[in-house]
Write a protein that binds this DNA or RNA. Structure first.
Lengths: 252, 252
DNA sequence: AGTGTTGGATTGTAGGACAATCCAACACTA
DNA sequence: TAGTGTTGGATTGTCCTACAATCCAACACT
């Protein structure tokens, strides 16, 4: 088989114009495979609970088993796969409880990031948020569900990045695959998009006040008031006050 | 070389009496090596910035390069090592900024866990906290720094575990190596231990009130008021209000 | 001082080998 | 029939060897 490595890969949506000066990131085959895993889980070709046969999959992907195993280690670290010794790796399942956990974790992480961002806001950062918001709005207008999700994700990612808190960003990144998965599984009607878009504007305004308390609270309540959270969280009222009340479901 | 696997490993300090019914966890060699890495970083035999030569270290540890590489992947996922393609893995360094990041991240995670725990507190959980506290107190009395750190860590870990929020626990676990590293690097005088022990009692009391707000706030302020945080965070006043003010240092 | 060039060290990946483990199916026994 | 051995194939865990790709520092050139 081909023994050459995947040399370089640029995320094509590289927003900032300074493509030239931006650090070039070589991508190893292992990372490439890991990314494929993420996408496969997110787009549903790898279903929750599905097991992974190393030799078989390695051959189908035309990579060595070692390479595949390393990729699996990464995904396990990110929580997308689970693995017990001597047993196949499995795609983790997304139960209502897990859903609640993801949303609350996001809430405290993004809430804190918003607090930081509010304190360190610069005109450039604000401009960037507004740019992304434009795209969100446009996607909502165009009724483009996939595009809307992409920019929605980008919005939250931007907040995390601009908060300047590296560890928090890392932590957020590790659960971001779950976030994407949730985006993918929510069956919004087109009616949901526009109010959602307008709400993002309110988030920007909350951050723009410069008041850390307002910014943090806005992000927190916002994440926990999402309809899909409500749906999964069953009878729970998901206000900021009730942030700590998990849904009580039997299945893990 | 030896081709047999490391069969099973029990954490000897397995508190709960039902050793028999508890699930048996086989440990792969990769995990064993990963654990060695963690300990080495924490006890200082692997110094921050130090680079890792795969073949060399693999031979010295009597494991194959593949096994070592998988272990490295795990540690990279936990953030203890950093790795760029085609370059050696390196032990990440703990700058003042990083220190601030760890403490604030802990604060929001543990704070939220305390909130949950306050709401779901049972007599058994409370008893467990008090048991651990006994050990903390005893270690402080005996002036045993290492023992104190161990039980201090166990205390916080117990809060995370008993909060019942799996994802939060996972997230916390991933940065726990950093926490241990901080414990290891703080050069407390013996005088610091007893007040610290007594303060842990106050944490228990805050949780025992059952008021999520009180519990969360107590944990948050507590983590950010630690002397070692103050030391690293330089001129910052680390009250709950100033939670979001990072130290401004040049070196990353 | 700035820019080619080169060789050795190291990482990235493949692929084969085999022991250890698991699991499901079957056989046996009370 | 329920419970308990037994067994063989499938799969994972680990090691090994091999070599291409990459990096880096040292040297040479201009």
């Amino acid at each position: 088989m081909l023994k050459t490595r995947v040399p370089f890969e640029f995320s094509l949506s590289d927003q900032n114009g300074d493509l030239l000066t931006a650090p070039v990131q070589p991508v190893s085959l292992v990372n490439f495979v890991a990314e494929r895993f993420r996408r496969s889980v997110i787009n549903g070709s790898l279903k929750p609970g599905e097991e992974i046969n190393e030799s078989q999959l390695a051959e189908r992907m035309s990579v060595s088993r070692g390479t595949l195993r390393e990729a699996i280690r990464i995904l396990v670290g990110e929580g997308l796969l689970e693995k017990l010794p001597n047993r196949k790796a499995r795609v983790r399942t997304l139960s209502p409880t897990k859903f609640w956990e993801i949303m609350t974790t996001r809430a405290i992480i993004e809430g804190f990031a918003a607090r930081l961002l509010a304190q360190r806001l610069t005109p450039e950062k604000l401009a960037r948020l507004n740019e992304i918001w434009e795209q969100i709005y446009r996607a909502a207008e165009a009724n483009d569900r996939a595009l809307f999700s992409d920019w929605d994700f980008a919005f939250h990612q931007a907040i995390m990045e601009m908060s300047g808190h590296e560890l928090l960003l890392e932590t957020w990144s590790k659960i971001s695959a779950w976030i994407l998965l949730m985006f993918a599984t929510q069956e919004h009607t087109s009616a949901d998009m526009m109010p959602n878009a307008l709400n993002h504007k309110k988030i920007i305004e909350a951050i723009a006040t410069g008041d850390p308390e307002i910014a943090e609270t806005k992000l927190k309540t916002d994440l926990l008031d999402q309809p899909e959270y409500q749906r999964f969280a069953q009878a729970q009222t998901a206000s900021a006050e009730c942030i700590a009340a998990p849904p009580s479901d039997g299945q893990k």
